[in-house]
Structure formats: C-alpha cells, structure tokens
C-alpha cells in the first residue's frame, strides 16, 4: 500500500505552467485545490478565524503576483505554504505584544521531553468519539502547544511536509525541526492520553 502522501500525489506542474503563462482559470484551480489546507494551516498558527482569512487572501494574492518568480525547483504547494507561514507569523506577532511568539526562542532545555503519563490506549480510540468531537479534541490539543512547537507539528504531521521542507518554510535548521517535532509529538501524546486511554486502566477514573 502506498503511503497517503503518494496516493494523494497529483501532478501540479502542468497547472502551474499554465497559470504562469497567464491562464487565470489554471490559477483558480490551484486555489481551489489548496485553499482548505492553507486556511487550516493559518488557523492553526494564528488561532484566529479573521486573521486566518486575511492570511488566506494574502497568500494567494502574493502567489498570483509573484508567480513569475516561482522557480519550479520546489513544489508550488510548498512555496505557498512558506508564504502562508510568514503571513501567519506576522499576524501572530502583531497580536501579541510580548515576545512569546518568536520561533527562534531558545527552547532546547530538554524539560519538555519528560514523559509523565503512561497509559495504554483503546485499540481504536478515535471510535469513542463522533467525528466532530474528535476534530475538536485534536485541534484543541494542537492549539495548546507553544507556537514554536505547534508550527513545526502542523507542517510535518498535519500538512505532511518533509523535514527539509519544514526547515525551509520556517527558516530553521533540520536538527531544530527534529528536536521540536519530537517534543511536540510527545506533548500531544500526553494530551490525547487523557481522552484515549483504555477504560479500566484509569487510576484517576474518579476525576
């Protein structure tokens, strides 16, 4: 069986070429193909629906205006993700007056790799919840991560960019992406354990 990224693979190049040569309907096709993912990404980073909509518009307007500069040595999708990430971070910085938003912050203290919660999960824990409840749980868990972790996690494990693509999009080194990704994954694992642990194993069931 092919991994999901390959089954979903589609050759965007002909569309991008047509868009570059001035075919507006080809560009519209690219927009409709990626708008949901870009909107979701922007919502995850900005955590604000209005900001996410601004980011969505800015991303595609910039992509449209700068299409001539798109080199074609990366994927179009990766290119617009990079624009969207930059726009989202700008929004986030504007809203926060403190300095908690920097992606360059020194976070390599190791403290967050501690595993506190060890409990076996149900075999198909997601079946315990409705689709809507599950979505709520997953999104809330991501949103509770610090920006530096949540941005890396969303790009790698939700949008399924490679480690290298994530590093380029965030202007980080590959080791920094890997280290943040590990911590983000472990933190999410802990957060989800609260919801997905096997009943009966729960020592704190009375809570």
């Amino acid at each position: 069986m092919l991994p999901p990224t390959q089954t979903e693979a589609f050759d965007e190049l002909p569309l991008v070429e047509r868009a570059r040569s001035g075919d507006d309907s080809a560009f519209t096709d690219l927009v409709t193909r990626y708008e949901r993912k870009i909107f979701r990404l922007a919502k995850h980073i900005t955590q604000n629906e209005e900001d996410a909509e601004d980011v969505l518009q800015e991303t595609f307007l910039k992509a449209y205006s700068h299409l001539g500069e798109f080199q074609g040595n990366s994927k179009f999708y990766t290119w617009i993700v990079r624009i969207a990430v930059n726009e989202s971070l700008m929004k986030l910085r504007k809203r926060k007056t403190d300095r908690t938003v920097s992606l360059d912050e020194s976070i390599d203290t190791g403290e967050e790799t501690v595993v506190r919660e060890i409990a076996v999960w149900e075999d198909s824990p997601e079946d315990r919840y409705s689709q809507e409840e599950l979505r709520g749980i997953l999104e809330k868990a991501i949103d509770s991560l610090r920006p530096a972790f949540r941005t890396v996690f969303v790009l790698r494990d939700v949008e399924e960019l490679s480690t290298e693509e994530t590093a380029v999009a965030l202007d980080l080194s590959v080791p920094a992406v890997k280290s943040r990704l590990l911590r983000a994954r472990l933190q999410l694992r802990e957060k989800l354990t609260r919801f997905f642990r096997r009943k009966g194993d729960d020592v704190f069931a009375y809570l």
Binding site: P4, F27, T28, V31, E35, R36, K37, F39, R40, E53, L56, Q57, F60, L61, Y64, A119, V120, W121, P125, E126, L134, R135, L138, D157, V158, E160, R185, L186, L188, R189, L192, T193, F196
Partner: peptide, 30 residues
C-alpha cells in the same frame, strides 16, 4: 505505541471545507 497512534490520527484528519463566504471573498479579492 501511543505516539505512533497520535501521528496516525492526525495524518488521517481531512481539512474541513472552508466556509462559502470565506471562499467567495477570496475569489473576489483575486
């Protein structure tokens, strides 16, 4: 095992359709 499941669950999460009005405003801006 639970970290592996965490990733599987997130990778299976399809993006929701964007609200129609958000889509319309994007198209109008373009």
């Amino acid at each position: 095992d639970t970290t592996k499941k965490t990733l599987q669950i997130y990778k299976g999460m399809e993006p929701q359709p964007i609200p129609q009005d958000v889509h319309s405003r994007l198209m109008a801006a373009l």
